[in-house]
Amino acid sequence: MSLTAGDVKKIAHLARLNLLENDVTLYTQQLSTILNFVEQMNQADTAEIEPFFNPLDLGQRLRPDVVTEQNQRDAFQAIAPQVEAGLYLVPQVIEGEE
């Protein structure tokens, strides 16, 4: 699998990463190499195999519906880049934009 510079830019945008033009070339080549490498997986016939998502063959444990957390806003926001009136500030969010 060889990626194009366009693919790399698209991936970078999905992952919200900025790549310089030089980096695009480098990542295009490196990611293509890695993808070629991982395609060794195709040597194995896995048609009848179930995916193995977690080593623990258990069900999800449940916690009781109890409030255990206290307000720690001051501690949490002490390390926040920008806050005002208890809110985290970010550049204007346009309504409905996603």
């Binding site: 009136a85 809110l87 550049p91």
Partner: peptide
């Protein structure tokens, strides 16, 4: 929630 009132051109986030 994103609060769209203007904080000097920024939005406030309440989680």
């Amino acid at each position: 929630k994103s609060l769209h009132e203007d904080f000097n051109g920024m939005s406030g986030i309440d989680l």
